[in-house]
Write a protein that binds this DNA or RNA. Structure first.
Lengths: 127, 127
DNA sequence: ATAGAGCTTCCAGCAACTGGAAGGTCAAGC
DNA sequence: GCTTGACCTTCCAGTTGCTGGAAGCTCTAT
């Protein structure tokens, strides 16, 4: 299977698939003409990467998860640890964004938003 | 005032202050020895940048906000528009992260996290 | 005179792609 | 056999917002 079909199948852009090869996540075989040829196994990995990236795991986390995916003797504790750490980070980001949201929405509400220069938003930013 | 004092005053690293100059956000005068010399006006701008970046505005948004800050004839509507757009983006990100959080926390809860290979997280990622 | 702190510029790198240029390959139609 | 257009390849640069480090000049205190 060539790269555009692999792209359709995995939902990843061809550019991204080549990038994943560059950084050693997958290694499809090459045909005589130099074209990449994706096996079923490669396609499984691409789909796995698409989903784990979609859940916000870093590419380096994905590399580890992929190796655990392929390791029939893995301990589920190892997977869970990565996921928990990621979850904590997501929760931290949510809290951070919610704090910004609170501040900003107060400022937006306080601003008349008319033709006049008076602006509580600017005043707040000016300190 | 030299750059390390400006850094202390604004809460921005000296590297960042130089970077802001590189991209044209501030233009401190130079002393005879080539050192940057920050005026009160420069310091106001740096504090403004520190706060607006702290609220998550992009550097390009900050550039526009800074020009509005300096424009005595600004319309508060222009400021409010930028802030509202940013707020919507923040709310979008929060929703996206909350969706990831829900999915991930379910998966983490479902995983035993022991020495055995069975893992609902991996199974989900595998599709 | 010298040591150490502080300043300068410039170049490289981070994450995770994405866009584009230059050029080889393949399948279809004439 | 030739052309056209859609593929494919590699490589380089750019994105965002800094950050680290090297090489070298300047200033202050001893």
């Amino acid at each position: 299977m060539n790269i555009s079909d692999a792209s359709r199948d995995s939902g990843l852009p061809a550019k991204t698939i080549r990038y994943y090869e560059d950084i050693g996540l997958i290694k499809p075989r090459r045909l005589g003409n130099g074209y990449r040829d994706y096996s079923d196994d490669d396609l499984h990995k691409l789909r796995f990467l698409q989903r784990s990236r979609g859940l916000g795991f870093s590419v380096e986390d994905c590399r580890v998860l992929l190796s655990l995916y392929e390791d029939r003797n893995r301990a589920s504790a190892d997977v869970k640890q990565i996921a928990k750490t990621h979850l904590v980070e997501i929760e931290r980001k949510i809290a951070e964004l919610q704090s910004l949201q609170r501040t900003l929405s107060h400022l937006v509400d306080a601003c008349q938003g008319d033709h006049r220069p008076h602006c509580p938003i600017i005043n707040d930013l000016a300190g």
